[in-house]
Design a protein around this nucleic acid. Structure first.
Length: 480
RNA sequence: CGGGGCGUGGCGCAGCCCGGUAGCGCGCACGGUUUGGGUCCGUGAGGCCCCCGGUUCGAAUCCGGGCGCCCCGACCA
């Protein structure tokens, strides 16, 4: 990189995003088109998300399992809408072991089909229900336009798959898992999300209903962060997932699936990042505190490093993820900027003056400049840091929420909708349109229905396009 | 798949019009200097100039062909 500073967000958001992803060491380009290498610093953010989700999955009674990467082509074709939805983006293995395969193998774009087939074996009676399974896996979707984390040909995710005796149980599961996602987004990633239902157009291929959590990025575009699908009996019928009731009757199961991917890492970057780079929420930050030692002479170095090591140990034993920047070649000023770019929530400076006074300098990433700096005693610094980290987590969420709420407009006419979207804002409007109407809005404005939010104003109003009375409002935005 | 651009040390680029055997910034290594907001100086390592063919005494440069990538329009966690 020739220039030292990253491109400003305001100047060119997508350039900012690309630069920060590479310069903050989240990812590096891969030799394969559309794929990226996730580097340790980026992967640790994913691991944080993963740990939080996995804990919640277990708490709600799910178990992890693993299904094959390869899916017989015929499986994909068993559910009509499903094939149609996915076939353009499938990667297919036609040769293996030096010869052509009898039946091509699809590299999974998602696993409803293989898992459906397995479920039909596993489930015999109502006693086997509900069946609550999750898998952590990679999937492949041959996308045309790719961007690191947001859309790559291969990505990591979890996919939950469950089977239930009744529609209502499946629906409750679908909604419960959406809540789990929303909880993870808000409390771990500090991303305020809007829960809602997808329109028919945006629904998962083969689902009865799709629910989503939608977030606003710093460029005001919408990002779908996770989805939960009530699959009805579509896959149960396609894969013959049946159970025997207490009354000895054969019934099809009701199934669900839900997924959240490494896209969430991109969401963290784009929700909190500023002109200087990343701002990581403490709960997900690989390093919550970075200590930058400052010294001139060797004797200063000895005294400073003693204090640094001691402080590091006490933070570590308090469960704070701490890192000492021991690099010799770089000046403190360089290190300050470097760690700010990499989004570390708190920087601790320890220099000769601090050693002398038993002090330390703390600088919080979410408050720029001197205002974010404080001088504290080394005694009791662990407690100070603990509450500082909690406060940073809270303030990132609040900032993001305030930003989002300031950029959602209620609109009543087509023209207002168009103007709002043209200004980059989200628009909220009554909606009673058809699929074609929805397409028309997309053609005219570039915005799509992100969701019908669960939180509705109540009452009824005139549809923004058709003028027909509607009881639902929809959220429109340009999306990733 | 239609329109535009680009392939030159790890990264970003210049050189190409006007052929003469490759350069700059960053990064990297070593030494020194500096270190409380992106130090400075010196030395050094590192290049099938995308590939194949042609023209020429001589090709990164000119000509022909191929490949790859990026950007913009129809799909998407």
């Amino acid at each position: 990189m020739s220039e030292q500073a990253v491109t400003a967000q305001s100047e060119d958001f997508s350039r900012w995003y690309n630069e920060i992803v590479y310069r903050a060491d989240l990812a590096s380009p891969s030799p394969v088109r559309g794929c990226v290498i996730i580097k340790p610093y980026g992967y640790e953010i994913w691991e944080g998300i993963k740990a939080g989700l996995d804990r919640r999955f277990k708490e709600t009674g799910h178990q992890n399992a693993y299904f094959p990467l390869f899916i017989p082509e015929s499986y994909i074709k068993r559910e009509a809408e499903h094939v149609e939805g996915f076939s353009p983006e499938l990667a297919v293995v036609t040769h293996a072991g030096g010869k052509e395969l009898d039946e091509p193998l699809v590299v999974r774009p998602t696993s409803e089909t293989v898992i459906g087939e397995a479920f039909s074996d596993w489930i015999q009676s109502y006693r086997d229900l509900p069946l609550l399974i999750n898998q952590w896996a990679n999937v492949v979707r041959w996308e045309l336009r790719t961007r690191p984390f947001l859309r790559t040909a291969e990505f990591l995710w979890q996919e939950g798959h469950t089977a239930h005796a009744t529609h209502d149980e499946a629906e409750a599961e679908t909604l419960q898992m959406l809540d789990v996602y929303a909880d993870c987004a808000m409390n771990d990633a500090a991303i305020p999300v809007i829960k809602g239902e997808k329109s028919r157009m945006e629904r998962f291929a083969g689902a009865l209903r799709t629910y989503t959590i939608e977030a606003m990025m710093r460029d005001k575009r919408a990002l779908q962060c996770g989805t939960s699908h009530n699959l009805g009996q579509n896959f149960a019928k396609a894969f013959d997932i049946r159970y025997l009731t207490e009354e000895n009757a054969q019934r099809y199961c009701w199934t669900t699936s839900w997924g959240l991917s490494t896209r969430m890492v991109g969401a963290v970057v784009m929700t909190h990042g500023d002109d200087k780079g990343l701002r990581l929420p403490p709960k997900l930050a690989p390093y919550q505190v970075v200590i930058v030692p400052i010294y001139k002479s060797d004797e200063q170095r000895g005294a400073v490093m003693d204090a640094v090591e001691r402080l590091s140990r006490s933070l570590d034993s308090a469960g704070i993820r701490v890192h000492i920047d021991r690099r010799e070649g770089q000046s403190p000023g360089f290190k300050f900027n470097d760690w700010e770019m990499r989004g570390v929530p708190v920087r601790m400076e320890i220099g000769p003056r601090d050693v002398e006074k038993n002090n330390a300098v703390l600088a919080r990433r979410d408050v720029p400049g001197r205002a974010g700096k404080q001088f504290v005693s080394q005694d009791g610094i662990v407690d100070v840091l603990q509450s500082l980290l909690v406060d940073i987590q809270r303030s990132l969420l609040e900032d993001a929420r305030a930003f989002r709420d300031a950029h959602i407009q209620d609109v009543e006419t087509c023209q207002q909708l168009e103007e709002a979207v043209a200004a980059g804002e989200w628009a909220r409007a009554w909606w009673a349109g058809s699929d074609d109407d929805e397409l028309k809005v997309k053609d005219d404005t570039g915005a799509t229905i992100r969701c019908f939010p669960f939180e509705q104003p109540g009452g009824a109003g005139a549809c923004v396009l058709t003028g027909r009375q509607s009881k639902r409002i929809a959220l429109f935005a340009k999306a990733y």
